[in-house]
Design a protein around this nucleic acid. Structure first.
Lengths: 146, 146
DNA sequence: CTGTATCCTTAGGGATACTG
DNA sequence: CAGTATCCCTAAGGATACAG
């Protein structure tokens, strides 16, 4: 045998989180699923230049196993699928928002100025609004015929 | 030529953040530096089982180049160094707190119950307290003779 | 369109020996 | 103690062809 990997369950919450989305693509996909309402395979592919088909398929599978997304039929087109974030994934909104805010403070453009302004002034409200928005998006995509 | 890598500067704030700490170790090191007040090489090594010396050295170098930490003489022992988080790094506290809170909500033990309770009830206060605590730790380590 | 299946390359990182 | 320097190896991931 090759020197068995330590299967020690992660005691550290940061380690735990990194095990789920601490790679090159997973968090980007989650961001698309949660904040950009990209629920379809092709949309996720189109949004992430450089992402390979096998990698996306793998990440979606893992996220489903971990309970962060649900794979269901597209009500608008029964031949397609939609990947919808679960409550667990939606719970990542505060962390994503803080990450985006930090990058914005470092000078990353592409962040709407009103976003940064709002988060400094009314973070709780912003997060509440975003969460509500996501819920509405999901509702629309669950409704048959949309 | 091998098909030149796109040097496109990252327009996405999540991508930007991941470029800095989107690997297996950097965020763990940052957590130690920021929340655990581990400022010395040996402490960082001891805290992260499996971390190799060359990898830690590399991460510290990158973080210094990126302006997230400052390498200075240890005032308590002029032969040693201390790596102190800068304001930029301290600005990651909200994100780290949200990440930890999310993991705790997923059932990760090792998170003090009062932490989770506090963040739900008084997030702003918790973050303010943590930030203040960090500032005090840094002050103590900057003072000569400590 | 939504994946699977391969193949192949590379960067990340583990182990270890060694230096100031 | 605080790194540097190697060596090596594996897992992650890019490219592409193909299948349901």
């Amino acid at each position: 045998m090759t020197k068995s990997r330590k299967p020690t369950p992660p005691p550290c919450p940061v380690t735990y989180a990194l095990e789920i989305f601490g790679d090159r693509w997973t968090l980007l996909v989650l961001k698309d699923l949660i904040l950009e309402a990209r629920y379809r395979y092709k949309d996720l592919m189109a949004a992430n230049s450089g992402l390979a088909t096998n990698v996306l398929a793998d990440r979606l599978k893992r996220l489903e196993q971990r309970g962060l997304i649900e794979k269901t039929r597209d009500p608008q087109d029964g031949r397609q699928f939609v990947y919808l974030p679960t409550g667990t994934a939606i719970g990542l909104i505060p962390m994503l928002v803080e990450m985006i805010a930090w990058s914005a403070r470092q000078g990353v453009s592409q962040v709407p100025p009103e976003f940064l302004e709002r988060i400094e002034r009314d973070r709780a409200g912003l997060i509440a609004d975003l969460t509500e928005q996501v819920e509405r998006n999901l509702e629309a995509h669950r409704a048959i015929g949309g």
